[in-house]
């Protein structure tokens, strides 16, 4: 009996150990890379990328347990039952030909693309031109100046689960360095009600060690020399609606 119980236990432990197992898997890959690549090359005509630099910043509690029934509830009259199902899974988002743009973030650079035929410039990048007359012309990478202006904005007082604690914040659609597109990101470094249409903004990166090669590596801040305009009735209203959000966020549990 104890032996059987132990077996079940070790089985369940194995499941929760998926994370460390994966991690150790990634490390040997790194070590054996040259040998395995040559081996693979000898057999395989197709050369595939290998990813030996792995940065894993997953928060505590992300365990990759997959799908698990974690409980149930029964209505007081005993007629209905509801199941509780938990899902915990990491995804790999493969960026392919957009990678230069995300790799640029790691170096604190903003890369967009430009169509060599019509000259349209894009950030976020498009790997080919959007104009049908350019017939999917391959764009070229261009480093953009990290400055622009606000096209439109809002003050968020509510958001998705993973952004609740960042409230309230200004989400601005900014046009960077003369691109034909605007891109959404946080506008920080000002009182939310002071945001305005057309204001100059700059791209500000997180410290290098904190970057993930993703949009969260940077945000907008007011451009150098910008100062907020005088209070207006509309700004007073925005302020009045924004202040309670600070208080509400303080009451939020973990």
């Amino acid at each position: 009996m104890p032996a059987a119980a132990k077996k079940v236990k070790s089985g369940s432990v194995k499941k929760t150990k998926v994370v460390p197992v994966k991690k150790t898997k990634a490390v040997p890959q790194k070590k054996t890379q040259p040998a395995s690549t040559t081996k693979a090359e000898a057999k395989m005509p197709i050369k595939k990328p290998n990813f030996s630099k792995v940065v894993d910043c997953r928060p505590a509690g992300v365990a990759e347990t997959g799908l698990v029934f974690t409980g149930y509830e029964v209505s007081d009259d005993g007629i209905l039952i509801n199941h509780k199902l938990h899902y915990d899974q990491l995804y790999t988002l493969r960026n392919g030909s957009n990678s230069k743009h995300f790799l640029g973030f790691l170096d604190g650079k903003i890369f967009g693309t430009r169509c060599p035929k019509c000259g349209d410039k894009f950030f976020p990048p498009r790997i080919t031109c959007w104009d049908l007359t350019c017939k999917m012309e391959q764009t070229e990478w261009v480093e953009l100046k990290p400055v622009g202006y606000v096209h439109t904005f809002t003050i968020a007082g509510w958001s998705g689960r993973s952004s609740l604690k960042r409230l309230p914040f200004v989400l601005a659609y900014g046009i960077i360095d003369g691109c034909k597109t605007a891109v959404a990101n946080f506008l920080l470094g000002l009182d939310p009600w002071d945001a305005e249409f057309g204001m100059p903004i700059k791209v500000v990166f997180k410290p290098k060690a904190e970057r993930l090669g993703a949009m969260v590596d940077w945000h907008f801040e007011p451009g150098d020399g910008w100062t907020p305009g005088p209070m207006t009735p509309e700004k007073e209203r925005m302020k009045k609606m924004t202040l309670p959000v600070y208080e509400w966020v303080k009451t939020m549990k973990e």
Partner: peptide, 13 residues
């Protein structure tokens, strides 16, 4: 890749 992870949900957009 661009919008959700910078705090965006539909009411905000």
């Amino acid at each position: 890749r661009y919008e959700l992870m910078v705090g965006g949900i539909y009411p905000i957009f």
